[in-house]
């Protein structure tokens, strides 16, 4: 178990280091940062001043190691536009994105686990095919478009929910549903496949032979085993959702981390962009590690 842990941790750290390098390279792709920051009307003297002020006149490797060194202590630099620390900016915006991501994941689990179980129990029936069809439809639905349609229907025509803002829980209903749509197909399919596999196994036959009730067999015996990959994927999906929430935050004007990233890209605010990429990647790496650990705890066979 311990060697499993260390190995996972080493890989996670290596991935984080690679992403860090990529995030740095990414923002240097456009060539001269000082020129882009200064804007189209800047004079040569302005550009030189900016280059000095932001330390861009130093060798690239020095800049890189400086950034890495500071990032390791939690200092992600200063935003060019907001004139505050990037870490503060991200910390301010993170609650909105996390609320959105967790709302989306909970809605997705709430829909896909029952659907997956019912589809597995009625494998091959019309209901099963209908569930698989719903999963396909969900996969093809562009999230930003679904968001706009919900806004027109529930926001404007029915007037049930607010269209934008982050004031109350009602603001997170529509964005949460839209975000959930992106995870529902995968989670439903996985629950269905896991349940079908579990229901065909020997221990279920034993449970049946013992005369256990159908509900007990389904929920206590089959679901517990089918849940292992679902739990793991759910954690990974949360990581994807935090990355994908940039679109939904923009549609619903939720001022989360995704919105911050979008604004910063538009304003050439490089320290913010590279920090958001890094933070989201680290969260994803941490979540996949949690998923692996949960897998190992729930299923001792995986601890090699």
């Amino acid at each position: 178990m311990l060697s499993f842990l260390t190995r996972r941790l080493i890989v996670a750290l290596l991935v984080a280091a690679t992403v860090m390098t990529l995030a740095f390279v990414l923002t240097r792709l456009s060539g001269d940062l000082a020129t882009s920051i200064a804007g189209a009307n800047a004079t040569q003297a302005d550009i030189e001043a900016i280059r000095k002020a932001y330390g861009l006149d130093r060798p690239v490797l020095t800049q890189f190691f400086d950034w890495v060194g500071r990032a390791l202590t939690g200092d992600l630099g200063n935003s060019y536009f907001f004139q505050t620390r990037v870490s503060t900016l991200i910390a301010e915006r993170m609650p909105v994105t996390l609320t959105l991501g967790i709302t989306g994941l909970l809605i997705a689990l709430f829909v896909s686990i029952p659907l997956g179980i019912l589809a597995a129990v009625r494998e091959g029936t019309g209901f099963d095919r209908a569930v698989q069809m719903v999963a396909l439809l969900g996969q093809a639905m562009p999230s930003f478009w679904l968001g706009l349609l919900l806004m027109i229907t529930f926001g404007l025509q029915l007037g049930w929910l607010p269209i934008s803002g982050t004031g109350s829980w009602e603001n997170f209903v529509m964005p949460g549903v839209v975000l959930a749509f992106s995870a529902i197909p995968a989670l439903t399919r996985l629950t269905r496949a896991g349940m079908i596999q579990a229901m065909g196994s020997d221990y279920i036959r034993t449970a049946r032979a013992k005369g256990l009730s159908r509900a007990s067999i389904l929920l206590k015996h089959a679901l517990r085993n089918a849940a292992i990959p679902v739990v793991a994927i759910a954690a990974v999906q949360l990581g994807f959702m935090l990355g994908g929430s940039i679109v939904i935050e923009q549609v619903f004007a939720l001022h989360g981390v995704g919105f911050l990233a979008w604004e910063s890209i538009a304003k050439n605010d490089f320290p913010v962009v590279q920090a958001v990429v890094l933070v989201l990647a680290v969260i994803y790496v941490a979540l996949t590690m949690v998923a692996d650990l949960m897998n190992a705890v729930l299923d001792p066979r995986l601890r090699v």
């Binding site: 990355g243 940039i246 890209i265 958001v276 994803y284």
Partner: peptide, 12 residues
């Protein structure tokens, strides 16, 4: 897989 696709594509 750890790189957020939409964000990085937008940034590039």
């Amino acid at each position: 897989l750890s790189i957020p696709v939409v964000l990085v594509a937008l940034a590039v």
